[in-house]
């Protein structure tokens, strides 16, 4: 599988990373080099193998239903690049 320029633009869009048109060919080459190298996995037949998500081999622990957090409005908003009163602000979103 090899990426064409349109796919590079599409995944950059999905990842919300702006690309200048001039960057597309270089990225395309780099990504294709990486993906081409990854193709070596095709040597393996893994049809019957159960996937492993992570190395932690245990069941999920659960916490009790108690309010132990929150009430931190100032700290939560303190790093905001645009704060409007008690809200985060972003350019108007049209639904």
């Amino acid at each position: 599988m090899s990426l064409d320029p349109a796919t590079v633009r599409r995944i950059a869009r999905l990842a919300r990373i702006h690309l200048d048109e001039a960057e597309v060919p270089r990225l395309q080459d780099e990504l294709n080099a990486i993906l081409g190298w990854i193709e070596q996995l095709n040597e393996l037949d893994v049809a019957d193998i159960a996937p492993l998500t992570g190395p932690a081999q245990m069941a999920l622990k659960m916490r009790e239903d108690r309010v132990t957090d929150g009430g931190l409005r100032e700290a939560v908003l303190a790093n905001a690049p645009d704060r409007a009163g008690d809200f985060f602000a972003v350019p108007k979103v049209v639904e």
Binding site: D86, F87, P91, K92
Partner: peptide
Amino acid sequence: LHDQHPTKSYIDL
């Protein structure tokens, strides 16, 4: 909240 400001949306988490 889309109706609090002419050009901004406000976010309450």
